[in-house]
Computed example of a mutant assay.
Amino acid sequence: MRTATTTGPGLQVRAATPADLEAIAALHTRARAAYARNRVPDAPFDAPAEHARRRAAWERVLSRDTPTLCAVRHGTVIGAASYRARRSGARDAAPGTVELHQLHVDPGHWGTGVGRALHTACLHAWRAAGHSRAVLEVLWHNHRARTFYTGLGWRPDPDRRPAPDATHLTLVLPLDAYVPPAGQ
């Protein structure tokens, strides 16, 4: 994994470290609250208990060998992404498959290119590692995220049609034939 990429005015994507834990957990909590609030306006998605859950999850990610990137602008972590190679025994794990496990941007920076920069850095790392296919699961009701990924070339996995009551949609991106959209 490349450790640092400058992607725009004051924006850098680099490998995350344990020192980034609090910032990543806080931005993930804010991002989750912002998109979930559209669906359930009064739910306490940014309550301390939610932050504690996000912190514990990211602590596990950062303590393992899970590749994790963060986007930093002017010394502040404003986005994070983590991914992992799919194990050969995992469901629908074709050889060379990588899973984008998390990609979050602080809501104050939505629409500024931070998510795209993280995505581009992931693409470079995936190709360098020899992956040929990427998958992710997105919340069905998170139309903002679905639009973001569709705009980057991700498509519903034809082998994984969602059930009528599904909460997630599986998207796939073939990396060997991928041509980034203009501006990436």
Rank of each mutant, 00 (worst) to 15 (best):
T76Q: 15
R87C: 11
F45H: 07
H124S: 14
A47L: 09
R53P: 00
A52I: 07
H168T: 12
A52F: 09
Q12G: 06
P67F: 03
P67C: 07
D159V: 09
V13F: 08
A4F: 10
N142P: 10
A47C: 11
S63I: 03
G115I: 01
L169T: 03
T120K: 06
P18G: 08
P158M: 02
A85Q: 08
T112W: 06
P174N: 05
A4L: 14
R116V: 09
R161A: 14
T68V: 08
Y149V: 04
P67L: 05
R39H: 12
G75W: 08
H51S: 08
E50T: 11
V114N: 03
A26I: 02
R84Q: 14
A25V: 02
R127N: 07
T112R: 13
R60M: 06
T7L: 14
G113M: 08
T3S: 15
E22R: 11
L139K: 02
R39E: 12
H28Y: 03
T76K: 13
G8R: 07
G79W: 01
L139P: 01
L123P: 01
A71F: 10
A125Q: 10
S132C: 13
P162R: 04
P95K: 09
T170V: 12
W58S: 00
A81H: 01
L27S: 02
R14A: 10
R39I: 13
G153C: 05
W58M: 00
A26K: 02
R53S: 04
P164G: 09
Q184L: 14
A134M: 04
V135Q: 08
R91D: 11
S132H: 12
P162L: 05
L173I: 01
A33E: 04
P174T: 06
A129D: 13
R86V: 08
L175C: 09
L21K: 00
P181N: 04
T3W: 15
R116M: 06
G75S: 09
H168D: 12
E22S: 12
A23F: 03
T7E: 14
A36Q: 14
R116Q: 12
T112I: 09
R86F: 02
H124A: 15
H104T: 10
